[in-house]
Design a protein around this nucleic acid. Structure first.
Length: 404
DNA sequence: CCTCCACCGGAACGTGAGGAGT
DNA sequence: ACTCCTCACGTTCCGGTGGAGG
């Protein structure tokens, strides 16, 4: 008599004590009441944006700092409060937050402007119209007596993809508007971003600038503690878990988001194991899991051609484990072979070169240009997938490319 | 000091899909 | 039906270049 496979599973799951009380407090989207160690920056932002409440145009603001340093959170928090006060006093002030990296939402000029226009009640089709038409509609939509603050997050990604003309147009729209006043808050985690911007855009975009320094280990501990208090039941975190978690993230430019994710995943692993406590081993396992999951997720959604290029690098690594460094030419030869095996039309080397650049920005490989003197100039490419994950990735790629 | 390799990376252009306006 | 958009993904063409070796 086969036992019912799920017999009692959900029942006991329900009965089993969860380690969490409110897991959301550890998720990236969570907006805490306070943003610790960023009081100064928040005050600065508030000071710069406050004139909006007198219906004056605030200076454009440029915020930068590394990932997980609290930029987005601080900016959102501040604009939210501002909007709330404006609403209470019935002042015509609008704040709009856009993340430019979201695919298909705001990652081109057309889409960004269309998105903004929709915020002001204009219906813009996803495609089809000329861009100036979209601009026209957008301007028409906002040009009433009001102050509008646009917060453009990950603005560096937008410019990288679509050029800085967008910003030039955006910083100039006040000249086109009769009643409305617009100011722009740009957020970037690329510190170099401003330096290679068109000088005209640069000066108007960064009328004001705020830098977010990375958190140090102690500050990270504070952040983790306050969130852990909300997220976990009392006493489930073993001694030293917070400290180690903070140390791990501090090692890597003080990324608070990463620290929180680590803690959350450690908690989930502990819970799944049926452990009563989250301890240091769970943290180690979490670190591993996050790394592997990230890679798998990214690799899975890459186009076939990208996968083929990556697979070439993986193959080289397996055939010659001692060989860390691959040159473009070698990789390309392997790649052509792979294409034959998986019945893919090989791309030109020029294109593959771009693919390599993109794999680099996904951190699947790291590539830098070197000169071998007499033997030419090329890129040295190093696979950034940890040895432990290589077999999984290899299998995935073979399946996807239908090899063997 | 000069040369010259093996690429890099900018620019212009082509194709084909998804869609608007007339 | 026809012309005109954007946009992703490629190709072709080509000038540019750091440094080992003559």
């Amino acid at each position: 008599m086969p036992k019912e496979p799920l017999s009692g599973f959900f029942e006991s799951f329900l009965r089993k004590d969860s380690l969490f009380v409110n897991k959301r407090a550890l998720q990236a989207s969570y907006m805490p009441e306070e943003v610790p160690h960023r009081e100064e920056q928040i005050k600065e932002i508030a000071l710069i944006l406050a004139p909006a409440l007198r219906l004056e145009r605030p200076s454009n603001l440029f915020i930068y700092g590394r990932t997980g340093s609290g930029k987005t959170l601080s900016a959102r928090k501040t604009t939210e409060r501002l909007a709330k006060v404006a609403l209470q006093s019935e002042l015509p002030v609008r704040t709009v937050y856009v993340n430019c990296k979201l695919k298909g939402i705001a990652d081109t000029e057309y889409r960004l402007i269309a998105h903004l226009a929709r915020e002001f009640g204009k219906a813009i089709p996803a495609t089809g119209l000329p861009t100036d038409e979209v601009y026209r509609s957008f301007l028409e939509g906002i040009d009433t007596k009001q102050v509008v603050i646009f917060v453009l997050d990950e603005i560096d990604q937008l410019v990288k993809k679509a050029g800085d003309e967008i910003l030039y147009n955006l910083t100039r729209i006040n000249e086109e508007l009769k009643h409305c006043q617009v100011s722009i808050v740009g957020i970037s985690n690329d510190l170099q971003f401003v330096t290679n911007l068109d000088p005209r855009v640069k000066s108007s975009l960064s009328e004001e600038e705020i830098v977010f320094p990375p958190y140090n280990a102690l500050q990270l501990q504070g952040i983790l503690k306050s969130r852990a208090k909300l997220a976990f039941k009392e006493g489930v975190l073993s001694e030293g878990v917070i400290e180690k978690c903070a140390a791990y993230a501090a090692r890597d430019h003080g990324d608070a988001r990463k620290a929180l994710e680590l803690l959350r995943v450690a908690g989930e692993l502990a819970e799944r194991e049926g452990s009563k406590k989250v301890n240091l081993e769970h943290l180690d396992k979490a670190e591993d899991k996050i790394d592997r999951d990230r890679i798998i997720d990214i690799v899975n959604v890459q186009p076939k051609q990208f996968q083929a290029v990556l697979y070439s690098a993986v193959l080289i690594k397996i055939k010659e484990p001692k060989k860390e460094i691959i040159f473009t030419g070698e990789l390309y030869n392997y790649y052509k072979d792979i294409c034959k095996k998986s019945r893919l039309r090989p791309l030109t080397q020029r294109r593959v070169s771009d693919v390599i650049t993109e794999l680099d920005s996904l951190s699947l490989v790291s590539a830098r240009i070197i000169s071998k003197g007499r033997y030419g100039r090329t890129r040295e490419i190093i696979l950034s997938i940890p040895d432990s994950s290589i077999p999984v990735v290899k299998k995935m790629l073979e399946e996807s490319l239908s090899i063997r």
